[in-house]
Every structure is written in C-alpha cells, then in structure tokens.
C-alpha cells in the first residue's frame, strides 16, 4: 500500500507540475528545419522589371530575406523596423508572396522600399520551399549562403536585439 501511495503521489505531482508550467509558458514558435541548411537556388522574376534574377544578384555578405505581401496587415507594422535596419546598412532582399504585382508595387510606393529588390513569388512556390506559413517571415542568410535563422511574424525591437544584431555584429568583427 505504501508503495502505491508513493507512486501515486509522484505521478500526481509530475502531472500537475507539467500542467502548471504549461499554463505559464508561451508555446514557442515552431523551429524551422532549414536552419544551417543552404538557401535553395531561387528562380523567380523581379517584381518591378519582371526579368528573371540570377542567383549572383544576391548579396555576398550576411543579409535579410524578408517575405512580405500587400494584403498582410502585420507587414505594415513591421515595415518601419525593416527600413531602420536598411538604414543601418543591412542588405535586405524581399520576397513578394502570393500577391498581385500592381498591389505590391503600390504598397511599396506608399510605405517605402528598403529592398535591394523583391522576388515576385506569385504562386507561393518559393514560400513552400522555404517553409513559409505566417507572413511576414524573415530569414537571416549568412555570407556562405547558409540560413542562419528564421523569424516568423513581424520583427520587433526585441528580435532585432536578440537575434538579428548578434548575427550581423559577428560579421563585422
């Protein structure tokens, strides 16, 4: 009986500890399996000129790949931060995701265009390759073409401090 009692108590305790912690923890975002893998070769046209962009046009240094769309509310919120990062000298390439060209170009003229250029991913094919599910998403690509990190959701100051700056500072050392 005593053994039963002790085991019951332990199971009881573990169970409630799990549930309590679960209550207070924010469920983390899903980690991307693409981290530390090479950025796949992108075969898409430029948003403005509609010409195919060669892979050579991608920056040779650490840069940001930002997935955005004109229909995405959170992108408007994030855009200020993107522009700030661009002003700090960070190169940013855009991926216009599942959007109409006119809407996208119009959006850029209203809110500003900090991108070196934007790919036009009308069908969302590139999005699938990159595991995109929640626009906006931002990838940090290293100079070796390796995906260093993937940020799901709008970029905040906290994210800039914790995840973006460190990867770019390392670069400049």
């Amino acid at each position: 009986m005593n053994l039963q009692k002790n085991i019951s108590f332990i199971v009881f305790a573990i169970f409630f500890i799990i549930l309590s912690i679960g209550l207070f923890t924010d469920t983390k975002k899903i980690q991307s399996p693409l981290i530390n893998k090479k950025l796949p070769e992108i075969v898409l046209p430029d948003l403005k000129s509609q010409n195919m962009i060669s892979h050579n046009f991608l920056p040779k240094e650490t840069f940001l790949l930002n997935v955005w769309a004109s229909w995405c509310q959170a992108c408007i919120v994030e855009h200020e931060k993107i522009k700030n990062l661009s002003n700090k000298g960070i190169k940013i390439v855009g991926v216009n995701y599942k959007d109409q060209r006119e809407d996208a170009i119009g959006w850029l003229s209203i809110y500003g265009n900090p991108y070196l250029f934007s790919y036009s991913d009308k069908e969302g094919r590139l999005g699938l390759e990159l595991g995109v599910y929640g626009v906006p998403e931002t990838f940090i690509i290293g100079e070796d073409g390796i995906i260093k990190d993937k940020i799901v959701g709008p970029i905040t100051d906290e994210i800039i401090n914790k995840r973006i700056d460190p990867l770019f500072r390392k670069n400049n050392d």
Binding site: I18, I21, G22, T25, T27, K28, I30, Q31
Partner: peptide, 14 residues
C-alpha cells in the same frame, strides 16, 4: 493529448 506539451516544455521539437 499531453505529449506535445511535454516535449515543448522540455525545449524539444514541437
């Protein structure tokens, strides 16, 4: 039902 929660809390893969 609870297992995904357990893994998540342990910092393991979702």
């Amino acid at each position: 039902t609870i297992y995904p929660l357990i893994l998540d809390l342990l910092g393991l893969e979702k």
